[in-house]
Design a protein around this nucleic acid. Structure first.
Lengths: 240, 240
DNA sequence: AAGTGGTCTAGACCACCAT
DNA sequence: TGGTGGTCTAGACCACTTA
């Protein structure tokens, strides 16, 4: 990184590089602030500024008196950071996942573009049905670049006791740090209606979502259909 | 504010109070950092931490070498902070507004709850059609608490050369700092279809949006219908 | 040249947690 | 008690804007 960029940006970049390289694993504490400051040749104030930004990006988590930890893709983390769908009334709940389809295929033009891989490259195609409080609410049609997830089998996918992103992290060391969702309205097709127990006409949210790890590398793209009779996608603009 | 709360939080709170009270107007520069630090009895570092948070919340804007300014509801600001709808391809554009309806009424239960006013309190009911690059894309059904916007007439609403939020700010000193949007899918009714030039069935986004000023006071609630054949609602999760 | 915000330092002291 | 992060200070120097 260029010499003119501020020291705290360079420190931040080095921390991210260490995370990407697997130097510090998710859930673990990173070294203390004074240790890191010395290691990077910065003052504590500068080190803290770098860490401040990584905390704001949900990449690190500070715990007063305990240490600073690499964010782990727990259920709570997923719900708080990456899950925007809430019941019309009452608190957010965690979705229960049911596997509907799992096969291997090749990237079509749209998938290839979103995953930044060549058209025709091998992908995993996974379809899941998500329930919230027992109700069928979401259908996900997931595409993963097969190269990033070697040996991911249906059994391994099912045999996790964590979120999908948690699986990426635990089994492949891939941490999702950001997702971009493009939301439109559509009528559910017959297959989606069957999965969501809807009668035509069946207006649903159609969400194209791509997940990225460090360095803006895409790792997962999916088309998600959401039944919104009892639920809402909640978006807050003008941060707090 | 309690004595135990950190100084930078108290400073931040006092700055927001000054803004709310109209001590510093939108678009104006606030005093320099050293001046403010002295005034609040804090060091520059502490003052900067307070201002940092207000900048992150889009309430203040720093300009290196010029000063720190109260965010003004310009078109660009609106587009960047509060407008999430973009064409499927190409850059975001600014919407052109057409007034469809303007009348006075009383708050129904739902509106009253969202605006935190009594049911039956006087409201303004405004309906607008928004075009993007000439295409009809959005219908807004707005409810404003009449008490906050005395003497707002159809003419005054039309005779602005700014955004709706800009009008609130310039004419009433009310600054929108945050909006919460709840998004669902629906079929457009006949009137909405007519405004958006849609044929049935017409799946659209249905967005319930409430805007807040300082201290979480609601000032505007609206139901927005969005035609998404050429556009998308874009949401980024896991901030950068 | 003067004033502004941006970066950085080298501490001090406090609050919290584990042992 | 020792280590951690959280707050706060009182500067220094740099980069940018305006006059």
């Amino acid at each position: 990184m260029a010499d003119r960029t501020p020291l705290y940006k360079r420190v931040k970049h080095e921390i991210v590089e260490a995370l990407r390289a697997g130097r510090w694993k998710h859930g673990q504490a990173i070294p203390g602030e004074s240790t890191l400051a010395t290691a990077f040749g910065a003052s504590i104030g500068t080190l803290r500024k770098a860490v401040d930004e990584l905390v704001a990006e949900n990449i690190l988590v500070r715990q007063h008196g305990r240490g600073t930890f690499v964010a782990s893709h727990t259920r709570d983390y997923m719900l708080n950071v990456f899950f925007a769908i809430a019941p019309r009334k009452g608190p957010k709940t965690f979705p229960e996942t049911e596997l509907v389809g799992f096969k291997r295929g090749r990237a079509d033009v749209s998938t290839a573009k979103r995953l930044q891989i060549p058209t025709g490259a091998p992908v995993l195609a996974i379809r899941t049905l998500l329930r919230l409080a027992g109700q069928r609410v979401i259908v996900d049609d997931i595409r993963l670049p097969a190269g990033l997830f070697p040996d991911l089998t249906e059994h391994a996918f099912l045999d996790r006791d964590t979120t999908v992103y948690g699986l990426y992290q635990m089994r492949y060391g891939i941490t999702v740090v950001r997702t971009v969702e493009e939301i439109g309205a559509a009528l559910a097709d017959a297959r989606t209606r069957a999965l969501l127990a809807l009668e035509p006409p069946a207006p649903v949210l159609r969400i194209e979502r791509t997940a990225y790890t460090y360095r803006d590398q895409p790792v997962d793209t999916r088309v998600r259909y959401v039944r919104t009779s009892q639920h809402r996608y909640v978006s807050v603009l003008g941060k707090r």
